[in-house]
Design a binder for these strands. Sequence first.
DNA 1: TATGAATGAGAGTTCATTCAT
DNA 2: TATGAATGAACTCTCATTCAT
Lengths: 198, 198, 198, 198
Amino acid sequence: MKKSDDTRRRILDASAKMFRRKGYDTTTLKDIAKIVKVRAPAIYYYFDSKEQLLEEVLNIGIDRIHDAVQHAIAGSASDISHRERIEAAILAHLATLLRHSDYTAANIINYHLAPKNIRKRHLIRREKYNDCWRALLQEAQQAGEIEASVDLHHLRLFLLSALFWTHEWYRKEDEPTEAMAKRITGVLFDGIGGTKAR
Amino acid sequence: MKKSDDTRRRILDASAKMFRRKGYDTTTLKDIAKIVKVRAPAIYYYFDSKEQLLEEVLNIGIDRIHDAVQHAIAGSASDISHRERIEAAILAHLATLLRHSDYTAANIINYHLAPKNIRKRHLIRREKYNDCWRALLQEAQQAGEIEASVDLHHLRLFLLSALFWTHEWYRKEDEPTEAMAKRITGVLFDGIGGTKAR
Amino acid sequence: MKKSDDTRRRILDASAKMFRRKGYDTTTLKDIAKIVKVRAPAIYYYFDSKEQLLEEVLNIGIDRIHDAVQHAIAGSASDISHRERIEAAILAHLATLLRHSDYTAANIINYHLAPKNIRKRHLIRREKYNDCWRALLQEAQQAGEIEASVDLHHLRLFLLSALFWTHEWYRKEDEPTEAMAKRITGVLFDGIGGTKAR
Amino acid sequence: MKKSDDTRRRILDASAKMFRRKGYDTTTLKDIAKIVKVRAPAIYYYFDSKEQLLEEVLNIGIDRIHDAVQHAIAGSASDISHRERIEAAILAHLATLLRHSDYTAANIINYHLAPKNIRKRHLIRREKYNDCWRALLQEAQQAGEIEASVDLHHLRLFLLSALFWTHEWYRKEDEPTEAMAKRITGVLFDGIGGTKAR
DNA sequence: TATGAATGAGAGTTCATTCAT
DNA sequence: TATGAATGAACTCTCATTCAT
């Protein structure tokens, strides 16, 4: 890890941090440069444009969470139930989002408003991550652990929206990530209906 | 309704539309003025600043959905179950968000990135809307229709995140709003667990 | 002539002046704005870009000289010789170039280095002016006043190069424009060869 | 010829090429470095500044053409006519300009717009080249091969302007340089006047 | 002999905003 | 009630240049 690579990484980190906090448009290159302790034009030594900065931040945001979830699934014992694997995936998603990543949060906040061409290229990555979940849910349904009547397409979108937005309100002081993953999985599989409910 | 009031409203409508589409920062007053068929400085006859435009759009966005949900709850027959009332609330939320309102979508997209002072003032309104749901869920839990063990705080945040972000992916061609509301309520109360699931 | 039109014209005049003096690239919008007694962004109220400024200056530069030459030809008595008509054209060209026009001088200096797309569009105008001369020379040759062996293509290019570049060295104190036009025409038709020349 | 000298020369060659093609201002040191297959700061090992690059290119541009013309005159047999010597000079000028030299073309294009101090120093060289022609023409006039009435000052400026700008339009496919030199000399001495012309 | 890393100065451009009318 | 004209502030980006290595 040369000094050069380090500076590059620090620029990205600063970008992610600021894009998350103020959004892409409001963030200036000066803001970023200040954090890195460099003058703004130095950024152009490493990146072609502000847009490229956004694109890389966006990509890393998805890649991180994707890797974590994939790893969690792959690493789980082969004899566990699908419900347990889904819980593991939820936990990996939450842990990455909530613990490390300015990148993922920046992704969520800035994706819509990103320039069309960037969004288009980025979509490929998003879809790959979605594929993970598609497979996960499908297998669970085929195994009978998710009711046959459930529309997996809508379920996935609904679940991921909710998971992604935890970064807005989740406070790790309230509840450890593991507990939350378990709780979410519980609601998801068993519902909230009490004994009195129809 | 004087011509003046009408122009004011058209400026707001155009702002909501553009803020939703391109975000607050990227939208220029010229963009808005063009839709209204007016020159940009005319906006200053009705509003003090671009920020005020954002604030009003944000407020209307919440007010609309709040009114709709409140109305739905208040209008429901007194003898229906809490589950049915919650379904009605979900439907009202979705219908407003998905059918009518650039304002509500603009709110969702721009809230985070709004200037701090605006966000602070706006929070009051958001909280009022949240109160609606707090009451709704609490009553249901007290009545035993939601399991006692469920943490309502997290449940509400989780549910509302998911509901708000439907505007990103929902296509009314796929499924009527009513059906979706029913489906969501179903998953929420009964879970997705199949017969094989623990 | 409203104030607006006046400002626009003054911006163009200032541009022509500066483009002539320092060249397009070296001239800044601030330079131009200073002459017009306006701040630089005001230029954008009238023009889309610095390039548009260049294009208009280039066009005016050719148009002025074209109009003058055309007018001189059209206005000459019908019974004069072709040589006399050519002299009139040379005079009109010189008079416009040397007396009024920053525009034409700016054109000469900046044409090569102008962005390709501008050069391409501008070429049409240049060709129209060239057509003037093509016709003028052709008619003279057909009438026998220019020797049949002369290659008009090269002659025109050669003559116009020389005429255009008079703006670099001509001092009207030395010789009135009329005298110079006559002298040039003389050399052109009769040559410089003395009695001793082969 | 050490490697060092070679690199220096290649930097100059690349500069001349680019200054000719895009002009001094638009050419970046990166452009030049790319051709030489070096990084931009390497240029500073050989030259003090971009301006020095320009100055040397400008100088070489004149020197080359000067040497060629001088050599042509000096080398011509002592018994040839002045007209023939002038033709030889024209040929040498054209051949250098049109066949070899990015330097000379770069000179023509960039001289006006060069910084004042450079232009001032460079003027000395230009004047030396002009002296060549002054002498050439004066001797011809004294020998009676150019009419006594011809103003040599204007003649020289006019002729050289035209010669210099051939680089804009000359295509060697049309006519060999030798033929063009002969043709130009012909027009110059004998004029274009046909039998019908006064 | 040459480069990697960085900078200062400044360019064109955009935009919310102002103000006289 | 609305516009034409203009501005100040700020932004992204470019580039010649520097300097340690």
